[in-house]
Design a protein around this nucleic acid. Structure first.
Length: 590
RNA sequence: GGUCCGGUAGCUCAGUUGAAUAGAGCACAAACCUUCUAAGUUUGGGGUCAUUGGUUUGAAUCCAAUCCGGAUCACCA
């Protein structure tokens, strides 16, 4: 329980006693005191003024006296400036907090809630390798799942493989036309990259054919439909849905190449799932749901056979849910998936980590599920995140200006190797240990970079400048951990309580660490890992100031040494725990 | 055009259930390693919080209008 949740009821009680004014504890505004003023936490008094018809200074004084006299073990002094009551918390309170929690390996972890949430993320298309945007998605989804777990939820991580559709057929057609039977083994190219290369080649060939048709006097729209390679892809989709053996065989073969490639990347970046769904399965259930919806009158059928839902009464448009030829659209399979997830896991909340370009889609999906009366409809939540853009604009696979996931991880690792070698602090490491360290630091830098920004905001990545290893970064936080561990390798605290007054840097660090549990809750409520990233950076920063200015092992007194060792232990724990919620490991040495 | 999202330091971002003089990091200038890891610490300069008006004791935060940028509104996924 955080200090604020202790202070609020105390203030509420005092107001009731002094003025018979009843104010709900949770609505009382208590903030950390700004550094320029004297005190630890501040009660903002303005909101009481109207009710009490007294000056804020008067209220502050009376409230301060009351709090001090009834909570002698918590408060030592107060001061009032304008409408702010600044309270100084007793050193003993902070020291007790530290001594009680530094040995607690579960500090920050909440009790089980007996509530289940599903988090769907990654959702790759099986026609191209993962890029930087997918990494943001994977890191976000994994982290949010970890944050839910930390808060006591039962979490199911799922992935939907978008393994069917016209886009998959495009890479298949291009492979048939241009590959001469090339395989990952024969070319020594990772499967997802090999298939992606043909998807890109499809785009080039299509453009070439369109240009030719346009030159011969056909309109551009018409040319797109008439291009032979496009017609071949469309025919292949029809054959696929019809189950034509040769097409299915090719589809299975190429998808298996892609899955092999994905598995390597997922393993490397630490993404994992409890359950993977395949669109090639869910679209059938989706079609059944469309039939049911037709009977219920939720959907309507056009004369040409296509099926629609009219959402104009809800301020949206009419949306197709099944094509004229009876095949499934994107929405069809997502309705099926929503139903399937609910049947299988029956969670109260189902989070979809998907880019903000699909905001409209998910708005419609939820509305349709509600209208169909699906049990899980209310729990559908689209966690919408912004695109990762390059300085030149959006990444587009078809245009070839993407930052490939495997490449960027390689680059991060080699930068971390370069820095590590320059610093020369781990010359005694074996090659194995070095490799592991480069991975920990490189991937840590990348994950931190992508998670420190509010998910809903789009972000810009400049490949020219590459990711920094100083300041507000993963390696900075990792370094702080290694520094704490380095001290603790020499000596550990012996579980005594410090009797001396706290110095400012000691107190600042305890106050920062004490916030951890509140931060965990906030991150979960907001489904926002950047809350954790910002917090753990602050902890690392505060710790670095502390450890630079004050001696630990050669402290002035035994009491101080004990206190500071305890601070090192709790700091290391909080950093390790918070970073683990971001999917980032911390090294003992670096 | 409709709907939605965004605009905070040169750059990348915090801060938005209204609250004290708007904060970090990078970059720039300077100081600090015979002393627990300098991937560090300390100090400094740098802001019309897109613009205008409104509500309020109090607005980066709420409301309205305007400007700029983006997404989306497909028988693509």
């Amino acid at each position: 329980m955080g200090i604020v949740t202790i202070l609020q009821p105390a203030v509420s009680k005092a107001l009731s006693k002094l003025y018979t004014l009843e104010i709900a504890a949770s609505t009382i505004l208590i903030t950390e005191t700004k550094p320029d003023f004297d005190g630890d936490y501040t009660v903002v008094l303005f909101s009481f003024v109207k009710n009490l018809k007294k000056s804020p200074e008067q209220i502050g004084k009376e409230l301060g006296e009351e709090l001090l006299s009834t909570n002698k073990n918590i408060f030592v002094s107060y001061n009032v400036i304008k409408g702010f009551l600044n309270l100084t918390i007793a050193d003993n309170y902070w020291i007790d907090f530290l001594t009680e929690n530094y040995t607690n390996n579960n500090f920050g972890k909440k009790d089980p809630l007996n509530k289940r949430v599903m988090v769907e993320y990654s959702s790759p298309n099986t026609n191209k390798p993962l890029h930087l945007g997918h990494l943001r998605n994977n890191f976000l989804g994994w982290s949010i799942a970890a944050i839910f777990k930390q808060n006591g939820y039962d979490v199911i991580k799922t992935c939907i493989a978008n393994d069917r559709g016209i886009h998959i057929c495009k890479s298949m057609i291009a492979w048939q036309l241009f590959a001469n039977g090339a395989t990952p083994d024969s070319t020594d190219i990772k499967g997802d990259h090999l298939v992606g290369d043909y998807y890109v080649q499809f785009g080039y060939e299509l453009k070439k054919q369109i240009d030719q048709l346009v030159e011969s006097g056909i309109s551009k729209d018409e040319a797109e439909k008439e291009a032979p390679i496009m017609k071949a892809a469309q025919q292949m989709l029809i054959d696929w849905e019809a189950g034509k053996p040769a097409v299915i065989e090719l589809w299975k073969k190429m998808n298996s190449w892609v899955y092999d490639g994905f598995a390597k990347t997922y393993n490397r970046i630490g993404s994992d799932f409890d359950k993977t769904y395949y669109e090639s399965n869910t679209y059938l259930l989706g079609k059944e749901m469309v039939e049911k919806g037709l009977k219920k009158g939720v959907f309507e059928q056009e004369e040409d056979g296509s099926v629609w839902i009219d959402l104009t009464a809800d301020g949206l448009d009419r949306k197709i849910v099944r094509r004229r030829d009876g095949t499934a659209v994107y929405m069809t399979q997502d309705i099926g998936l929503a139903e399937l997830k609910q049947q299988e896991f029956n969670s109260s909340l189902s989070v979809y980590v998907v880019g903000d370009e699909q905001n409209y889609h998910f708005k419609v999906l939820k509305l349709i599920c509600q209208k169909l009366g699906l049990p899980g409809a209310e729990g559908i939540f689209h966690l919408s995140y912004g695109m990762v853009e390059l300085p030149s604009g959006r990444m587009k696979t078809r245009e070839g200006n993407v930052v490939d996931a495997d490449d960027i991880v390689d680059e991060m690792e080699s930068i971390s190797a370069k820095h590590t070698q320059e610093l020369g602090k781990v010359k005694d490491f074996t090659n194995e240990e070095l490799k592991a360290l480069y991975h920990t630091i490189g991937l840590g830098a990348l994950k931190f970079f992508l998670l420190r920004v509010d998910p809903k905001k789009k972000m810009i990545f400049n490949p020219e400048e590459s990711i920094d290893f100083h300041g507000f970064t993963g390696p900075f936080v990792q370094f702080s951990y290694a520094r704490a561990r380095s001290i603790l390798r020499k000596e550990l605290p012996i579980n005594q309580s410090c009797k001396e007054p706290l110095q400012i840097l000691e107190k600042k660090l305890i106050i920062e660490l004490e916030k951890y549990e509140t931060i965990i809750t906030q991150a979960s409520e907001e489904m926002n890992p950047s809350v954790i990233a910002n917090y753990v950076f602050k902890v690392a920063q505060t710790f670095n100031s502390f450890v630079t200015e004050l001696r630990v092992l050669t402290a002035e007194t035994a009491d101080k040494k004990e206190l500071r060792l305890q601070l090192c232990v709790l700091t290391a724990h909080v950093i390790q725990s918070a970073m683990s919620l971001l999917g980032i490991e911390v090294p003992e040495r670096m």
